[in-house]
């Protein structure tokens, strides 16, 4: 999936706060349902950036002990991949190690923090979320 250059040019100039706010709001909504046993102590006060390499932008967030919150750069750990590859990982169509071997996913900064986050995502059962979606959408997203 190639994103047209003019679109990249526009997107890379937009502020990152709105999409990040959407992300942390969503995370706060689903947190207890998806991760009932997780206290996120390892993420508290740490900053994670997910850079979207083909859009030259990204989101940076943190956890304040109670909620996911917007954060500013520099982050403690930075993931970088194309938007399409993030989508592939999220759908569990490819495993992140495969994309790492192929140099499509990079992790810089605190590797342990990054690994903890990657493994949390791997261990997450998304069924409780899908249960809220209407049937056609659920079967499209089922992983």
């Amino acid at each position: 999936m190639n994103i047209p250059q003019p679109v990249v040019a526009v997107l890379s100039r937009l502020p990152e706060a709105p999409p990040t706010l959407a992300l942390v709001t969503a995370l706060n909504l689903v947190r207890r349902r998806l991760w009932p046993e997780e206290d996120f102590a390892w993420l508290t006060g740490r900053r994670v950036r997910m850079a979207i390499s083909d859009l030259a932008c990204g989101v940076t967030f943190s956890f304040d002990g109670q909620h996911f919150v917007l954060a500013s750069q520099p982050a403690d750990v930075v993931f970088s991949a194309s938007l399409a590859d993030y989508w592939i990982i999220a759908r569990r169509q490819e495993d992140p190690d495969t994309l790492f071997f192929q140099r499509r996913l990079t992790i810089s900064g605190d590797t342990e923090l990054g690994l903890q986050l990657k493994n949390l995502m791997d261990a997450t059962d998304f069924e409780p979320l899908l249960a809220f979606l209407p049937d056609p959408l659920r079967s499209r997203l089922a992983i």
Binding site: T106, S108, T111, E112, G114, L115
Partner: peptide, 15 residues
């Protein structure tokens, strides 16, 4: 290789 000891550094296209 304990993750706490691992660092990947990207420098342009080189890692």
């Amino acid at each position: 290789s304990p993750a706490g000891s691992v660092r990947w550094e990207t420098d342009g296209a080189q890692m």
